[in-house]
Design a protein around this nucleic acid. Structure first.
Length: 686
RNA sequence: GGCGAGGUAGCUCAGUAGGUUAGAGCAGUGGAAUCAUAAUCCACGUGUCGGGGGUUCGAAUCCCUCCCUCGCUACCA
């Protein structure tokens, strides 16, 4: 019954996905990989386990260089900015990382190169030479999906550089006709390059065994297994380990000038290098090995669902490959409790659409604990869930303030009024008292088991249930009656209530640490080992501290204000638009057209086939507006059309031009630019 | 169109080794109480468990089929 101290301590290594230093983190990130991990870690610490919690910024890869180019600064500026912002956001939110490192540090580059070199020297990596398109304007090799042209087999004009998805044929980039860079629009040139590939396929059998064994032993989540099965079913293929790019970890081979390690084969190693950094900081050189290279370590990797393949397949494969060759062997993740996604008021987070809220902005408005509690009570453990402002308000007001806060407040007020702020003596116990004492004692066990099984949502629900039980016990004991008739009985009830609060403080510490710290202070006490927290630890006569209101209510108008802000992109996301000259603009011929006819394009979700009248000619045009308009409502509308756009084929249909439309706050939906009825078709816009 | 997930009370959801009257929180209605941040506690649900078909003595839970929603993906010139 949880009355023995923790005798078999676990050695636990916990990591949370490294956030990408190319933007601010928002509430969805917290729900996916950070808050559940923090709750788990804080619980484990209270439980007396030997645990470290590792995280840091992922600072390489193409998107960061693109942001840097757009702002005309170096990538270093970008990563420094977001590393610092996200570190601060985590700190304010109460994340208890043992270290928040970053992959731009030398120790990480060295670690990543060491892995590559090990594979390379053993001949594990497969070198493949190929001709790749190179964009001379932006001076970079173009990934396949950034090039398009005409398929040499079927004539499809939107083929990628190495395959055509229309006819399914594969070919060499040199065969592609009329290649265009999707980045600059220029015609790229072919340049020979070579890359090393990691032979994932060789590891498939062992990976499948690894996943099924771990899952069987440690109960992996169903959603994680589903993703793995999908990848295994498709068959694992060789994956390029290097990229032609100058931002990242340089490939440690002479002939690899201008190449870096592909960020996904390098970022996951950030967990290891961050632990090495922690080792240095603590001046315990063996610390990282104790966690990473001794097989009594339980390694748990918290991530969001988009990251599953990297943590259940690629990272384990890399570690296996290392272990095959080296004498110091790494342990593999024992569990990867990936969460699904948190949406925001019914739709997914989108910074550009102003949908959602980032962590720093949120914490400027509200304290961290109500957010931690609301997110924790609604984690996307089994499926996507939503953050609703109204729910946030109701969890804060109805649960934290009314149930938990008020229970604590009514107890303290009573004890100060009638017992001089000291823990009253425990007298003769009636059945109701014995039942309550027993109930309190059961909670740490029950909640602990749930957290151990990563059922954090359920654990949080149980925590609040103890507060509910506290209120019920208070009501049923009627101390406001017994204080006059039977002071001993009254004292007993308050003693038990105070001890219930002590247990609540311990149970809630992983979820709302800022508030529980206050509760411990009010109790003039400190946290204890988890397993002893359900007992009657506060003794008769113990002097209590100053009491305070823990959670203030949030007014409707504060919440309404936030709801009203939704869908309005905030001012600080200004895309930096490239300047053009008036002559550039004059190349574009925008003309007014009347829509004569509109019909759906077969088998397409977004496309409509339009017949338009440009005054002196009729044209067919294919537009991606099917999600926004029904064909019937379009007929007769006067719209603006790019008249001199090079014709294209879409779904086999000719499209001569493009209708102008603007984005809306609703994803995938647009609004046509409509022209006043008095303007005649064919009129040029300027 | 391809792949994946999901459709259970007004709302948010739990519930699969198939089995007595299908659950919780919130909201709503009624009541008790007054120590407390007008906070608490108790009582109250005629829900086609998305539709249809099937397997079974018995299905929300297994199979088939259809409908709808969401995500990724293709198409958005």
């Amino acid at each position: 019954m949880g009355n023995s101290a923790n005798t078999n301590k676990e050695k636990v290594l916990v990591t949370s996905a490294l956030p990408y230093a190319n933007g601010r983190i928002h509430l969805g990130h917290l729900s996916g990989a950070y808050l559940p991990a923090d709750i788990y870690v804080r619980y484990k610490r209270l439980n007396g386990d030997d645990i470290i919690y590792i995280c840091g910024s992922d600072e390489h890869g193409v998107p960061i260089t693109i942001t840097a180019d757009n702002e005309k600064v170096s990538p270093k500026v970008i990563i420094d900015r977001y590393h610092e912002l996200n570190r601060l956001a985590f700190e304010k939110f109460g994340m208890s990382f043992d270290i928040y490192s970053r992959t731009s540090l030398l120790i990480h580059h060295e670690t990543a190169r060491e892995f590559f070199k090990t594979y390379f020297d053993q001949g594990l990596l497969v070198e493949k030479k190929s001709l790749q398109f190179y964009d001379e304007k932006v001076k970079m090799f173009l990934p396949d999906r950034y090039v398009e042209g005409t398929c040499p087999r079927c004539g499809n004009e939107e083929a990628r550089s190495d395959e055509c998805e229309k006819c399914g044929s594969l070919y060499e980039p040199s065969e592609l006709k009329n290649p265009k860079s999707k980045i600059s629009g220029e015609t790229p040139v072919l340049k020979e390059t070579s890359h090393w590939y990691f032979p994932l396929g060789k590891f498939q059998e062992r990976l499948e065994k690894y996943v099924s064994e771990m899952s069987e032993k440690f109960g992996w989540k169903e959603n994680v297994l589903q993703y793995c099965r999908g990848w295994f079913k498709e068959g694992l293929k060789d994956r390029a380990y290097t990229r032609d790019l100058d931002w990242g970890v340089k490939v440690p081979v002479d002939e690899a000038e201008g190449k870096v390690l592909y960020v996904w084969f390098e970022a996951v190693l950030g967990y290891i290098s961050a632990t090495k950094e922690l080792s240095q900081k603590r001046n315990e050189p063996e610390l990282w090995k104790k966690f990473w290279q001794m097989n009594d370590t339980k390694y748990v990797a918290f991530i969001g669902k988009d990251n599953i393949v990297f943590h259940t397949i690629i990272f384990p494969a890399m570690l296996m490959a290392w272990n095959d060759i080296q004498s110091d062997k790494y342990i593999l993740p024992q569990n990867v409790p990936a969460n699904e996604f948190l949406n925001f008021e019914g739709k997914k987070f989108s910074k550009s659409r102003g949908w959602g809220v980032d962590v720093l902005d949120f914490l400027d408005l509200f304290p961290p604990d109500p957010l931690r509690y609301t997110l924790a009570a609604n984690l996307p453990e089994n499926k996507d869930t939503d953050f609703y402002w109204k729910e946030f308000q109701s969890r804060n007001n109805g649960e934290l303030a009314d149930i938990l806060g008020n229970f604590i407040n009514r107890t303290f007020t009573f004890v100060f009024k009638h017992f001089e702020g000291k823990v009253p003596p425990l007298g003769k116990l009636d059945k109701i008292d014995e039942d309550m004492i027993k109930l309190i004692e059961e909670y740490p066990v029950k909640v602990g088991e749930l957290i151990d099984r990563y059922k954090i949502k359920d654990a949080v629900f149980e925590m609040m249930n103890l507060a509910r039980a506290g209120n019920k016990y208070f009501n049923d004991s009627e101390p406001w009656v017994t204080v006059k008739k039977d002071k001993e009985k009254c004292a007993t009830a308050l003693n038990i209530c105070l001890n219930c609060i002590y247990t609540l403080a311990e149970l809630f510490e992983p979820v709302i640490p800022f508030s529980t710290e206050k509760i411990f202070k009010m109790l003039n006490s400190t946290k204890c080992n988890w397993n002893t927290s359900g007992r009657l630890n506060l003794k008769e006569g113990h002097l209590l501290g100053q009491s305070e209101i823990l959670f203030t209510k949030i007014e409707d108008k504060v919440i309404d204000e936030q709801i009203n802000k939704l869908g309005k992109p905030d001012g600080d996301v200004k895309p930096v638009d490239e300047e053009i000259t008036i002559d550039d603009f004059k190349k574009v011929k925008l003309r007014v057209a009347v829509i004569k006819n509109a019909e759906k394009v077969n088998k397409s979700e977004k496309l409509l086939k339009l017949k338009i009248d440009l005054g002196n000619e009729e044209r067919q045009l294919v537009a991606g507006i099917a999600k926004s308009y029904e064909p019937e409502q379009l007929i007769g509308k006067k719209v603006l059309v790019v008249a001199n756009l090079k014709p294209a084929k879409l779904f086999g249909l000719d499209s001569q031009g493009m209708v102008m439309a603007v984005d809306t706050s609703e994803e995938g939906k647009v609004k046509l630019i409509e022209i006043d009825n008095s303007v005649s078709p064919g009129t040029l816009a300027k």
